[in-house]
Computed example of a mutant assay.
Amino acid sequence: MADFQANTRPFAELDRAGRTRRLRRLAEAALTAYAVPVARLTPLAHGQNTSFRVDGADGHRYVLRVQRPDGPGVAQVRAEMAWLSRLRRESGLVVPQPVPTRARDLVTVVADPAVPEPRTCVLCHWVEGRFVDERLSAPQLYAVGEFTARLHLHGARMNGLDRRRVDDLTEFGRTQVDGFSAAVVERAVAAAGGDERIRKAVARARAVRAELGYGSDVFGLVHGDLHQDNYLLHRGRVHVIDFDDCGYGHFAYDLAVACAALAHLPQREELKEALLDGYRSVRPAAATTDPGVLGAFAALRRVQLRLR
C-alpha cells in the first residue's frame, strides 16, 4: 500500500527524495536519446534543476541535467548548449561539452506520466576538478579572473542567441520592454514588503548601465552565476560549469557576482584584488573592474536574490 501511495501522490506533494526518484525515471528515458551505454545513474543535486551523474559502460562520465519547468524554455536551453559548444571549440576554455542526441540535437524533451509536465534534458561530458571555498588563494582567484575575461571576449561576439537578460529583476520584468520600468520597480518594492532600498539599488544600476553603454567592450553574453559552486580547480586551471543562468548583460555583472561570493572569507579583499588583477591581465582597459560599477551590480544582485 505504501509503495502504491508513493507512486500515485501528486508530484508537488513529494519531498525532495520522492521527486528525485520520479525524475530519475524520466532521466533514464532521456538517456535513450543518446548513443551512450549507461552503466550507472547517480543523483547529484536537486535544486532549481536536477542533475544526475552518468557513468558510461565505455568508461566515460557525463552529467544529465533535467530542467526545471519554470526555467529557460527549449530554445533557450538549446542556445546555452550552442554557446558551450562554441566555447569549447573556439576559446580553449574548459566548460561542459554538450553531447548531441542520435538525432544531432543538443537537447531532448521527455515526458513521464508521474511528472506533471515534459522536461527539457541535456547531457554533457563530465568536467574534472574540485570545488574550493575557505582555502581559496590569491593565485587561484587570479586564474578565475583570467578565465572570466576570456569568457567575456568570446561572449562579446555571441550576438543573436535566444537568452534572457541577466539583470532583470523578476519574471514580470522579463515581460516588459524596459526591465527597470516604473511598473517593474513598483512590483519589486511591493514584493519586498515596501522596502525602498530596492528602488535606490535599481536607480543606481540603471545609471551605471547608461554610463557604461552597450558596446561589445562592456556588454555581451555572460555566465550569470559565477561563484565558488560553479568553478572548479584542476591542475592549476579553472574549469567553469552550470551555464543555466547565462544571458546578456554587462560584463561587470559576472565580476560583481564573483566578488560578492567571497564576502564570507577572511581573505576576501586579497582575493577580490587577485580576481580583478587576473581579469585586467587579459582586458587591461576594462571599465568593468571599476569599484563603483561593481558595487552597483552587486547591490542589484542582492535585490534579485531577495526577490527570487
Rank of each mutant, 00 (worst) to 15 (best):
T175R: 13
V95E: 02
Y142I: 05
A258P: 06
Y248Q: 09
R40D: 12
V166H: 00
Q67P: 01
S137H: 07
R306P: 04
Q76A: 07
R68Q: 11
D290N: 15
G179Q: 02
V218Q: 12
R16T: 12
A183F: 00
G249Q: 02
A286R: 06
R16E: 12
N49A: 02
A103P: 05
P43N: 10
A190Y: 01
E211Y: 14
G292L: 10
Y34S: 12
A82V: 04
V77M: 11
Q48D: 13
T148H: 01
D245H: 00
L233F: 15
F147V: 08
Q228K: 07
Q304F: 01
A190C: 04
I241R: 01
F219H: 03
D244G: 09
R187T: 03
F147Y: 12
V303L: 10
S216M: 05
F131D: 09
R174I: 05
R199I: 03
E128S: 10
V202Q: 13
N7E: 09
Y248W: 11
L221T: 00
T148M: 06
D105Q: 10
F297N: 14
F52D: 11
T32Y: 07
D58N: 15
Q304N: 01
W83K: 02
R283H: 12
P96I: 05
P10M: 06
D242K: 05
R237L: 07
G193P: 15
G236T: 07
A203L: 13
A260Y: 14
I198Q: 14
D244H: 06
R78E: 10
D58K: 08
H46K: 08
D277K: 06
L14E: 01
A2K: 03
A12F: 01
W83P: 01
L136K: 02
L212W: 09
R302I: 04
G160R: 04
H239R: 13
A17N: 00
Q140P: 10
A203E: 15
A12T: 14
Q97H: 02
N230L: 07
R164Y: 07
R89W: 00
P69D: 10
G224S: 13
R53S: 11
G71I: 04
A299P: 09
N159G: 13
L161H: 02
Y279H: 11
H239F: 05
H46P: 03
A252N: 10
V122F: 01
F243H: 04
Y34G: 10
R104C: 02
V282Y: 09
F219C: 01
F11W: 12
R65N: 02
G160P: 05
R197K: 15
R40M: 08
E128I: 00
V109W: 05
